[in-house]
Nucleic acid binder design. Sequence first.
DNA 1: TAGATTGTTAATCGATTAACAATC
DNA 2: TAGATTGTTAATCGATTAACAATC
Lengths: 216, 216
Amino acid sequence: MAEEKKISMAVIRRLPRYFRYLSDLMKLDIKRISSKELSERMQITASQIRQDLNCFGGFGQQGYGYNVEYLYDEISKILGTDRRFSCIIVGAGNMGNALANYENFSKRGFDIVGIFDVSPDKVGTVINNIKVLHMDMLPEFVKTHHVDIAMLTVPNSKVNEVAIQVTELGIKGIWNFSPTDLRLGDDVIVENVHLSDSLMVLGYRLKESMEGRKTS
Amino acid sequence: MAEEKKISMAVIRRLPRYFRYLSDLMKLDIKRISSKELSERMQITASQIRQDLNCFGGFGQQGYGYNVEYLYDEISKILGTDRRFSCIIVGAGNMGNALANYENFSKRGFDIVGIFDVSPDKVGTVINNIKVLHMDMLPEFVKTHHVDIAMLTVPNSKVNEVAIQVTELGIKGIWNFSPTDLRLGDDVIVENVHLSDSLMVLGYRLKESMEGRKTS
DNA sequence: TAGATTGTTAATCGATTAACAATC
DNA sequence: TAGATTGTTAATCGATTAACAATC
């Protein structure tokens, strides 16, 4: 057991993109595709596609290309789309609400099983069929339900504290929506969204282009 | 006029992070900092910090380091935090709501001046003091109000169409929340959020770590 | 078989890190 | 002046691209 080879983050971050394009190809009823054709659609080099895919195995056939459905299935497996992850949302504000109502997540294997907040206005309300519980209930909840991921949409000032709490409760994945960079131990995986960073980059690029410069 | 030097996206994407850390330092009343100290806080190399900053100019002083407030101001200027951008939100669903209510944006210079939707349930409602208008009003609105950025939180199936529409109306920046990669002309800048990509990467990394492998 | 296209190795490019002379 | 730390050049590392032999 164990193909070694460490796969770089650059490659991993492209996987969902391959997944999306292959899913689209299937909808278009396209049965096979060469790295060249795919490269034109995705606007990346064919070379990169072949390199990326060969990190995980030889999914193609010389002279033929790739079978779309087969490749889709393989990338699904790599991404773990077959698995289901139990998720809680901490922070039932507008962003928490948006996440709780986003049906695509459950389609991809991410089930929201609990929502938590401290505000008396929110505790007891129901969002997408899930009752919002008080943060005080969190430890008990995590002990009685299996939880893989905590989606943190709490105010920036509280996020560190909450992150430490969920980590201590044994939750292994954090989806962080606050601007704060969480610094936690090695046994928790943090994926950041940092919306305001993204918006500021847009502002920067816009400013540059208005001044007549090009960005990349 | 015109320092040339093309600045790489890798550097640009780190700017908001510098901005955040410097902002924190100011709150802590720290007046000066060396690249070495900052590197320990930010978990990147001192060398990278100096390289990054020197893309834009020599903001430090040998033997002293960087004056926190001065550096903060300079990065603010680079990022264009002094400017204001007029933004509209297209799609008044949960995500549109979340964005409309996120007060940090206006703090950073991004003002929401209009919200649009097609659903009769939503048109006419008021979100954070802004009345939701029907999409039919969009062309007229953009002609009478200056709009820099369109934040697109419409369903995936509609996003291409909407993106083309706002581009044709002369809007220069798009903040895209749909999974679709927009392919538009050179005179519009697109910044993607791709939440589900981010979540799938979290799923992948979690799966790998559960199987005992390490990611990066 | 001939043509096409992969898997994979080698070359290139760009980004990060190290080193150090300049200078506060 | 001596010590500290930058700005900047050079070295290293990793990621992307090109090339081509293997093979369907």
